[in-house]
Simulated scan of single mutants.
Amino acid sequence: MNYYGQVIDNNFKNSFLKEALMHPSFDLPYRGREIYVKEDYTYKMDVSGDFSCFKGSEKIYFKNILTYALSFHGGKIIDKHFD
């Protein structure tokens, strides 16, 4: 997987991002859950595709203010067309 994100607002808390990433769902284990909320922080992750080819984004909000945004994509690295 390849990803790139950036902090947008000073209310971003790295500790909240780490906590959100520790709770992936079984069905979508790419980053965190689709939604994770704790106190005034909300983590949202959207993804499309499957393990062979996927792309998505995650965002963190503090009191409905966007504080962090990240895009990711990936897939299988083994290709049966190459020996």
Rank of each mutant, 00 (worst) to 15 (best):
K13D: 11
S52F: 11
Q6M: 10
H73N: 15
E19M: 09
I77Y: 11
Y43M: 05
D40N: 15
Y41S: 02
N2W: 08
G75C: 03
K55Q: 14
F12Q: 04
D50F: 09
A20S: 13
Y3E: 13
D9C: 05
Y30W: 13
F54A: 11
N14W: 07
K13G: 07
D79F: 08
E19F: 04
Y4P: 02
H81M: 08
K44R: 14
D83W: 09
P29D: 00
H81S: 13
I8F: 09
Y30F: 12
H23I: 07
G74W: 04
S25W: 00
N11P: 04
K76E: 12
D46E: 11
K13R: 14
M22R: 15
H23N: 15
V47D: 02
K38A: 11
Y4E: 13
Q6D: 10
S15M: 08
N11C: 09
G56K: 04
G32C: 07
K59H: 10
G74Q: 05
H23L: 05
A69H: 14
H81A: 10
R31S: 00
P29R: 00
K44S: 09
G56Y: 03
E58L: 05
I77A: 10
F82Q: 05
S25P: 02
R33L: 10
N10L: 08
N11K: 15
G5Y: 00
F82N: 08
P29N: 01
I8Q: 14
I65P: 10
K80V: 08
S25R: 11
T42A: 11
F16A: 06
K59M: 10
F26T: 13
V47F: 02
I35A: 12
N10R: 12
Y41F: 13
A20E: 01
N64K: 06
Y4R: 14
V47E: 01
I77W: 09
Y36S: 04
R33K: 14
D9H: 15
K55Y: 10
R33D: 13
F26P: 03
Y68Q: 01
D46M: 09
Y68C: 01
F62P: 00
E19T: 07
N10V: 08
